[in-house]
Design a protein around this nucleic acid. Structure first.
Lengths: 344, 344
DNA sequence: TTGTAAGCGTTATCAT
DNA sequence: ATGATAACGCTTACAA
């Protein structure tokens, strides 16, 4: 037995038994040393000896055996809709840092919205693979929530919420739009438009609501609301709508950077000078924003902070506890060159 | 025993024993059914019964137990230097697709170049966690190779090679630069410059070599070679150097899209009209390329193909076999608006 | 057509 | 200050 395994499977390295026998102690002792068991009283010389053998053999504890025994994997999964979107890159980065700090690994996977891929991960992430699940990006409905609950590991939505959702962390999108609107108003704009994200994205919805609320508070008409889809393509289309609207707008708030890049593109194509003819400001600050023409004024929120906090919550909060957190991190206005006072 | 585990660790779901006893069969039978053991001859009725119980209980095989037994984890790790770079996003996507097809999960992690983070992953990826390791991006030297070998799982470099490297897949960067140079020559340019990537990146080096070779073949002087670092910032700096060089260049080949975006920015700042005063072409095609001003002419290579092929090789080739593959996927010239004939 | 049993490498409890 | 032992959940050669 175990012979054919050795050939087909991975090379198995030295085990705890190898270390124990070579050091002349019991496996239990080695285990306690490796895990820094605080209750372990041991002769320094023995410890030295064991440590030496570990180094000599290059012993690495077997993760599978460990998690079989402890029912913990020290791995958490993060599902994102799109790896090519640098915004998710930032979330991942933050999550990874936090996971590392908690001595865990981060398993990332891209989840398209389809039902099959959802099923796939349901299978893949079956029992014993991860300690928890982070879901960034949409596509979580009631049916799926139940599905997830049956899956086993605790889960948490990242920057997605919704009616009835019990566990999520989101950024303060309302406040971010408020900051953006304030900037435009201070410049003297009164005729604003909003270029939104996809209708089924609730971060987009929160931004839209924040925009309307901020305009309301200023006693202004919200103006035209174009629907984009968080892509450059959608942003370009949305900008075209805004430009051809009957009402003349002097400033546009765009729901994300990708859309804003598309919006700038469309303006350029239409011969509209930014910021001379029209100001453009975007929610979120990605590095590309500084290099487009003109460099984009943005409102920065910490996506890395979001990712990090999500991991923290997932790892520390009881699995049945509701989590509804709006992250209160600093929100900064980054003024570049796409906004200016309206021409008189 | 096993009591305190149940409280601290994850909730353990139904096990194979639960299924077996409820279905009135042995665990072995359940196992064979779950794994589609082809050698299993079983009464259809029994199979039905077992399957029903599995569904009823929501049984999911425990991954830890499985890989402890089989010495396979069905997980591979992919280390990238930067999640915010959409180019790595594409590689990840390709790798994920291939991993999924091979019924494996992909564990991605960002590896900064530092020695500590390397150590960290060495620990984290210790025995029994992954079946293999994909390393995209630099920072693999001789010492680390040994380190990796001691780690256990087989590994493979993605788009990174180097003298003595035994296992890698790379894109055909030489051919890509050739395509780019041909395009510029066909437009009538003769005074080219090259804006390179970081000196320690061998994909950058391959592109530089390809450029020089192509220029040589055309009987032209390679002109100015500016050193960038694959970032927009570096690209902007490199472009400044090129613009202030004594020699006047009419076209620039940029080693990657991020640098090209920076180069366009610098040109704009300097009042140089692209493509009227100067043509710019970039290696790789990312979606942003279509939206910058002016839209960027690029040479497209399949980064997803690269990721997919890497997984395939890692999973199918013997662990000790050398792998030195230059991917022969189609290389396409995407003509947009940043290239034009030189002004006469 | 199905069952038996050994063992994968750890760790927690209890004993010495 | 250290050791013995059982158990975590699963797979597979072999027996029935």
């Amino acid at each position: 037995m175990a012979d054919e395994l050795r050939s087909r499977g991975a090379r198995r390295g030295p085990t705890i038994s190898d270390v124990a026998s070579r050091a002349g102690v019991d496996r239990a002792v080695v285990s306690r040393i490796v895990n820094d068991d605080p209750r372990l009283r041991i002769k320094p010389s023995t410890r030295e000896r064991v440590l030496a053998v570990i180094a000599e053999l290059g012993y690495q504890p077997n993760a599978a055996a460990r998690s079989l025994r402890t029912a913990r994997t020290r791995t958490i999964a993060l599902l994102v809709p799109d790896f090519e979107n640098p915004a998710y890159g930032q979330i991942i980065k933050g999550a990874e840092t936090a996971a590392t700090a908690a001595d865990s690994a981060l398993l990332t996977a891209s989840m398209e919205l389809g039902e099959e891929s959802f099923e796939h991960y349901a299978k893949q992430l079956g029992k014993g693979r991860v300690d928890g699940l982070l879901l960034a990006g949409g596509g979580i409905n009631g049916t799926r929530e139940e599905h997830l609950d049956r899956l086993g590991p605790p889960w948490l939505c990242v920057n997605r919420t919704g009616p009835g959702r019990r566990r999520y962390v989101v950024l303060d999108d309302e406040r971010a739009t408020e900051v953006a609107v304030s900037h435009l108003l201070e410049l003297g704009h009164t005729e604003l438009a909003f270029l939104s994200g996809p209708a089924d994205s609730d971060s987009a919805e929160r931004r839209r609501l924040g925009y309307i609320a901020a305009m309301d508070a200023a006693g202004l008409d919200p103006g035209f609301i174009a629907h984009g889809d968080y892509t450059a393509d959608g942003g370009a289309a949305g900008m075209q709508q805004i430009l051809s609207a009957k009402r003349r707008h002097t400033a546009v708030l765009v729901a994300n950077v990708a859309s804003a890049v598309g919006a700038l593109y469309a303006a350029r194509r239409a011969g509209v000078q930014i910021p001379h003819d029209m100001s453009v400001i975007s929610i979120h600050d990605l590095s590309i924003a500084a290099y487009v023409a003109p460099p984009l004024t943005t409102v920065r929120m910490s996506l890395t902070g979001l990712g990090a906090r999500a991991v923290e919550l997932l790892l520390t909060r009881p699995r049945d506890e509701a989590i509804r957190e709006v992250l209160q991190e600093p929100i900064d206005l980054i003024v570049r060159e796409s906004t200016a006072p309206p021409k008189s």
